[in-house]
Structures are given as structure tokens and as C-alpha cells.
């Protein structure tokens, strides 16, 4: 119980700090959203539009920093994140809700899959060190994971989309399709997700394999594993319930962190594949100095990472009783 209270306390302090930093950092950038929007028009708008935009965005309202901070915190707790300036006049929450499902679906799923597959390969290859699997898979995936993933993305576009023409080139769904819960649309989404998901998957597996394999090698040499063998337990049971369970612990924290980062999407993958997710939105928010959108996205990422770490702490506590008792 005391463990839980401490973790929750830490969570709240970290949240407040994130909220505050998040408020001040965008304001250190030069210019204002109206000027940023003028920059986006690339000289294609009457210069007098600057005045109109400043009026629309309320940039010259001379609100003091403190009162802006107070209203920001208040609004955040009410779930009111303001109006996006780059997607003006849409509210930030609706802008984010458009992109969130795409990132969770694509990046979330491929992260989970990457973790499961990578961990399994890592555990098995450590268990059968020097075997066929161990000499083939880990080196291959570790080499692939050294490639920048946008580059793998570009190659897979070239090979699978353009040369073989198996998969669509870009987008989260066909341009002319209407998003709806129909089989044809879901199928359309899935086929569009294959290449970006594949890219994230094969570039992330290597990391999981490496850490899991190293952990396993240490754990396998432990006395309790020898003991289990001596007892004559089935190898499979020893692999997953004795060695695997313990070797998994360090990996789990890493997994929780990467789950948190699912929210930030995979900026480059989304960029290369024209994928309508949060990563690209974040990039765009920064480029157009869209403070409300930027703040909300950073906040979302921070909260997601903090909660993911919190959950991994709790999970570690469940898996490993030692973390609970030692204070």
C-alpha cells in the first residue's frame, strides 16, 4: 500500500511539472501563431491578413503570463484545450481525436507485436544458445534495427508498393473512401497499415531480442534454474515460468516506456507514408507554432509515458515481490 501511495505521489508531482514546463516552453519561441500562419501562406495572401489573423487568434490581447497560466491549468483540468491555430477554428480536442486512433492502431499494435515477437525470439535464442535460431535471427534483426526506420520505410515503398504493386503507396485509407465501420473500409485501412506497421515492426524487434537474450543468459545461469532442471521440470515450463518471468522484468519497463511513446506516433514513418497519425500532427504543430495543439500533444505524451511507467512499476511489483518489500 505504501508503495502505491508513493508511486501515485510521484506521478502527481511529475504531472504538475510537465504541465508547467509545457506551458512555458512554447512561449520561448520567437514570433506568434499569426506570423507563423503568414509564413505558411508563402507570400500568397494580402499582407493585411496579418492583422486579421492576430484578431482571430487573439495574440495581442496583453494577458499577463500568470493569468494565462492559471487559466491554462484550469482549462486543462476541464479538458478544454483551446482552439488549434493551424487547424483554425477547430478545437484542439477534435483535431487530436482525428489522429489518435490512427497512431494507436498503427504504432500501438506494431509496438505490442514487436515486443511479443522480439521477447519470444530473445528468450528462445538464449535458451538454445548457438542453435540455428540463435545464429540466424538475432544478428539479422539487430542489423535491421540499426537502419533508420524512415529509410526502411522508403525501401519498402519502393519494393512492395511501387515495384511489386502489392500495397498502396500512401495514406491511412484510399483517398476517396469514406471512413465508416464497413468491411470494405476496414479492409482498406488494414491493407494501408501493412507497410508502415511492417516497417516499425522489423526495425523495433532487434532491440527487444537483444535485451531479452542478454537477460535470459544471466538468468539461465542462476541457481534456481539449475534447481528447476534438477527437479526434472519440463524445459518449456522452465523457459517461460522460471527464467522468462525473471528475465522479462527489465524489458517490461522499456516496453511501458515505448507504449507511452505510442501516443507521439512514429513521426518519420507517418511522414513517409502520409499516415494521418499524431506524429505527423506534432511535427506540423511545431512548424506552425500552434501553441494549443503543441501543448496538448506534449501533455498527452507526458501523461501517457507517466502512466505507462506507473503501470510498469505496478506490474513489476506483481511479478517480483522483492520490489514491494524493500523500502
Amino acid at each position: 500500500m505504501r508503495f502505491l501511495v508513493r508511486r501515485v505521489g510521484f506521478l502527481l508531482v511529475a504531472l504538475w511539472a510537465a504541465l508547467t514546463v509545457n506551458f512555458f516552453i512554447p512561449r520561448l519561441m520567437p514570433g506568434n501563431p499569426a506570423q507563423a500562419m503568414m509564413a505558411q501562406f508563402r507570400g500568397h495572401v494580402n499582407p493585411s491578413a496579418l492583422g486579421a489573423l492576430e484578431a482571430a487568434f487573439g495574440v495581442n490581447t496583453h494577458q499577463s503570463l500568470l493569468s494565462a497560466y492559471v487559466s491554462y491549468v484550469g482549462n486543462t483540468f476541464q479538458g478544454n484545450f483551446g482552439i488549434s491555430t493551424s487547424y483554425f477554428p477547430l478545437p484542439v480536442s477534435s483535431v487530436i481525436m482525428r489522429a489518435l486512433p490512427w497512431s494507436i492502431g498503427l504504432v500501438g499494435l506494431s509496438t505490442v507485436l514487436g515486443f511479443i515477437i522480439g521477447t519470444a525470439i530473445g528468450a528462445i535464442s538464449a535458451w538454445r544458445r548457438g542453435g540455428l535460431l540463435d545464429s540466424a535471427l538475432p544478428p539479422v534483426f539487430i542489423i535491421i534495427s540499426a537502419f533508420p526506420y524512415f529509410w526502411v520505410g522508403l525501401l519498402s515503398i519502393w519494393f512492395f508498393a511501387l515495384t511489386l504493386n502489392w500495397f498502396p503507396l500512401l495514406g491511412g485509407y484510399s483517398e476517396t473512401a469514406t471512413p465508416a465501420w464497413t468491411w470494405s473500409f476496414v479492409g482498406d485501412v488494414l491493407i494501408h497499415a501493412v507497410l508502415p506497421a511492417f516497417t516499425i515492426l522489423i526495425t523495433s524487434i532487434g532491440g527487444w531480442i537483444l535485451t531479452m537474450r542478454n537477460n535470459m543468459i544471466t538468468v539461465v545461469a542462476e541457481d534456481y534454474v539449475k534447481m528447476a532442471r534438477a527437479k526434472g521440470l519440463k524445459p518449456r515450463r522452465i523457459l517461460w515460468h522460471y527464467a522468462g518471468r525473471n528475465a522479462l522484468l527489465p524489458n517490461l519497463t522499456g516496453f511501458a516506456m515505448s507504449l507511452g511513446f505510442v501516443i507521439s506516433g512514429a513521426i518519420l514513418v507517418e511522414y513517409v507514408f502520409n499516415y494521418p497519425g499524431l506524429g505527423f500532427m506534432l511535427l506540423q504543430a511545431v512548424q506552425s507554432e500552434d501553441y494549443p495543439l503543441m501543448q496538448s500533444l506534449f501533455l498527452l505524451i507526458t501523461v501517457a509515458v507517466l502512466f505507462a511507467i506507473f503501470l510498469s512499476d505496478v506490474a513489476t511489483a506483481i511479478l517480483d515481490p522483492r520490489t514491494r518489500s524493500s523500502t
Binding site: 500562419m37 501562406f41 486579421a52
Partner: peptide, 16 residues
Amino acid sequence: QGMLWPCTFNPFIPSS
């Protein structure tokens, strides 16, 4: 345009 369409069509706002 380097962005996904916001689907707003206000003719007086320069972005839409």
C-alpha cells in the same frame, strides 16, 4: 500543403 485537411471551409479565414 504538408497537412491533412481540417475540412473547414470558412471563405474569410486565409487558411481555409
